[in-house]
Amino acid sequence: MATGNDRRNFLNALGAGASGILLASAAGDSQAADEPGNGQVFKGTSKKGDIKEALDAAIQAAMATARGNDRQVRWTFKSLSGVNGGIIGAHEVTVTIEAAIL
């Protein structure tokens, strides 16, 4: 069962993540936003409700498809979703990115 601190930490992380996304989109033009990408979509999930862990998993999934020693992935955040509650006390967060493999 989740405690008040667990919920507060999750909401703080969610707010920080959303703020960062809003600030990044308000910051002006970025090269990644201007390029259409190559349409590859990757997802990462955290069973602990950790947005950074889910984002890192999505980026690692994209990196796994890149070849060579100097692998690069240019990614764009697409969505954030999750599941909370139920008998099992779920705290799942999923991040979806679109990535261009360079």
Rank of each mutant, 00 (worst) to 15 (best):
D70I: 12
R71Q: 15
F10H: 12
A27H: 03
I51S: 06
A16V: 06
V41T: 10
T65P: 03
W75T: 12
R67M: 09
Q72G: 11
N38I: 15
S79Q: 08
H91W: 07
V83L: 03
E53Q: 04
G39C: 07
Q72T: 15
L55I: 05
R8Q: 14
G39L: 02
A33G: 05
Q31H: 11
A62C: 09
K52L: 07
K47Q: 14
W75A: 14
G37E: 10
P36M: 10
S79H: 03
K52D: 01
G28I: 01
K78T: 11
V95A: 05
S19Q: 08
G82L: 03
Q72D: 14
R71A: 06
R74Y: 14
G89M: 04
L80Q: 08
A58V: 04
A61R: 14
L11A: 06
N69S: 14
P36S: 08
A26M: 07
G89T: 02
A62E: 07
N9P: 00
I88A: 00
L11R: 07
D29N: 10
G89S: 06
L22E: 08
T65M: 08
A18H: 06
E53M: 04
A90Y: 10
D50L: 03
G86C: 08
G17K: 09
N84Y: 14
Q60N: 14
V73D: 09
R71G: 06
S46T: 00
G68D: 02
G86R: 07
K52E: 02
G15M: 05
E92A: 00
G86E: 09
L22D: 07
S25N: 12
L80P: 02
K78Q: 15
V95R: 00
K43Y: 04
G86W: 09
A90S: 10
T94R: 02
N38E: 13
D34P: 03
R74P: 06
H91C: 06
N9H: 10
G86D: 11
A18L: 13
N38T: 15
L23W: 04
R71W: 13
A90M: 12
D70F: 15
H91Q: 11
G20C: 03
S79A: 13
R67Y: 11
D50M: 01
K43E: 13
A27F: 01
I21N: 12
T94W: 02
V73G: 05
K43T: 13
Q31S: 14
V95L: 01
N9G: 07
A24Y: 06
D29M: 04
A27V: 01
S30C: 07
A58S: 04
A18P: 01
G39D: 07
V93Y: 03
G44R: 02
L14H: 06
L11W: 03
G39W: 01
P36G: 07
V83P: 05
I21Y: 13
A57E: 02
S81N: 09
T45K: 01
K47N: 12
A13H: 06
I51M: 09
N69I: 13
G17S: 09
A24H: 05
G44M: 02
D29V: 10
Q31I: 11
E35R: 15
D34L: 12
N84C: 07
D56F: 03
Q31M: 11
T76N: 15
A13T: 06
T76P: 01
S46P: 00
V93P: 01
K52N: 04
G68M: 11
D70N: 15
G37V: 13
